[in-house]
Design a protein around this nucleic acid. Structure first.
Ligand SMILES: [Mn+2]
Ligand SMILES: [Mn+2]
Ligand SMILES: [Mn+2]
Ligand SMILES: [Mn+2]
Lengths: 220, 220
DNA sequence: ATATTTATTTAGCTATATCTAAATTATTTT
DNA sequence: AAAATAATTTAGATATAGCTAAATAAATAT
């Protein structure tokens, strides 16, 4: 059963909003995520329900089915592989890849993705630190914690960002935060939750709680 | 002015059918090329006429405009660059690339094409020997002759194929004809126009006139 | 328990891209 | 110059994907 580009985009949004299928998702949430109107979402939910990639109960939101999860993960896999390609091979910056990957992820060719994966040397994470599902949809998730949840003196390594918007990524570039950086929490301000972070044992960085909440680390 | 995928495909077809804008093209020819119905073509021609990429006079066929030519060449450029990528980097065979390139050519990102071009080292020809227009739409065409038009004892080098169908390309693989091969016409059969060709000074090949007409060479 | 607010769906419309069948125009043959 | 044929367009469908405005259902407050 083939899906259109719009259907794939909706299904991916539902997958993300439902936290990988763990929660049910409301029409309005989907509309906000897709920057469309709830009325349009209702139509699409009915269609996705007919295709049995979601379970749709009018007025009570949707749950993604196993089949839907599988398909969403395939689209996510393609999106992230293309992002790696753009950064590793075509020298795109990590804040320039999302829009293009959003289009490339809909190209239909299993051979293409298989070869691309091999060509990129079977990457496990995309340029934003998000894990790349394998061809069966399996994801090896690492235990990650947002910087604002770390305590003073704790150390770790930045492994991903929660917000992949160009604005946020360029801000990180500017202040010198990047994926792979070793960090230590030097101070936390009680008043506003802002933090002082030591990066690579040499550079000190001040960041708001909002920024910290969008940076993910593994603790060491 | 943005064009849809369907509009881009139609415009490319009109460009090819018109021999790069040299001839006018009929509705039925476009329908045959696009594997669609003349009624659908009439609708699309009106739209393309409104956008001034073709000049459309009802019942008298269409001519592509300068603007249309420019746009068609951009799509062709993208198509052929992607074909080079698939063959050179992802180890696709030359008979496997067309379908995928037909999708990839519609990805909208000038940066992507510019970087892809550089990454591929500014290739001048695609895997089928067709020239790749530069970013301004300029094409450096070589003087090419179909094998069936060569005379006995003439020599040359295969540079392109006219028919890029998988069936034809696999046939060429099977008999050992390829782009770059040095050839010599050993014999031409008067009766049916079939030829005997020496490939790379060692292998003798028999081919029908139909096959020969779809192989292009530069003479030496 | 009723009223109000919020969330969601339905109805009706627009735009794209296709189709078939009918109508029309152009071309060719007699 | 008609008649026949071929080419093309128009009319009226269908399917996708979006919209606004109105209707309705669910949740919350009084
Ligand atoms: Mn997308
Ligand atoms: Mn990403
Ligand atoms: Mn195409
Ligand atoms: Mn080609």
């Amino acid at each position: 059963m083939n899906m259109t580009t719009a259907e794939e985009n909706y299904l991916k949004a539902i997958y993300h909003l439902s936290d990988g299928g763990k929660k049910s998702v409301s029409t309005n949430d989907v509309a906000a995520e897709m920057k469309t109107k709830p009325a349009s979402v209702s139509d699409m939910l009915r269609k996705l329900g007919d295709k049995e990639v979601i379970e749709y109960r009018k007025y009570y939101g949707v749950n993604i089915t196993e089949e839907g999860k599988k398909r969403a993960l395939q689209t996510i896999r393609k999106h992230r592989l293309w992002e790696v390609f753009l950064v590793d091979k075509l020298q795109f910056a990590w804040d320039e890849v999302h829009e293009v990957a959003e289009e490339l992820e809909h190209i239909q060719s299993p051979l293409l993705i298989q070869r691309l994966d091999a060509y990129l040397n079977y990457p496990k994470f995309d340029p934003h630190g998000d894990p790349i599902p394998d061809e069966y949809g399996d994801v090896r998730a690492r235990p990650r914690v947002a910087l604002n949840e770390m305590e003073i003196d704790q150390t770790g390594q930045i492994v991903a960002v929660k917000d992949s918007s160009a604005a946020f990524l360029r801000y990180l570039d500017k202040v010198g935060a990047y994926i792979g950086a070793r960090i230590k929490v030097l101070d936390k301000v009680e008043f506003d939750g802002s933090l002082e972070i030591l990066v690579d044992q040499k550079k000190t960085l001040f960041m708001s709680k909002d920024v910290a909440a969008n940076i993910l680390a593994i603790q060491s």
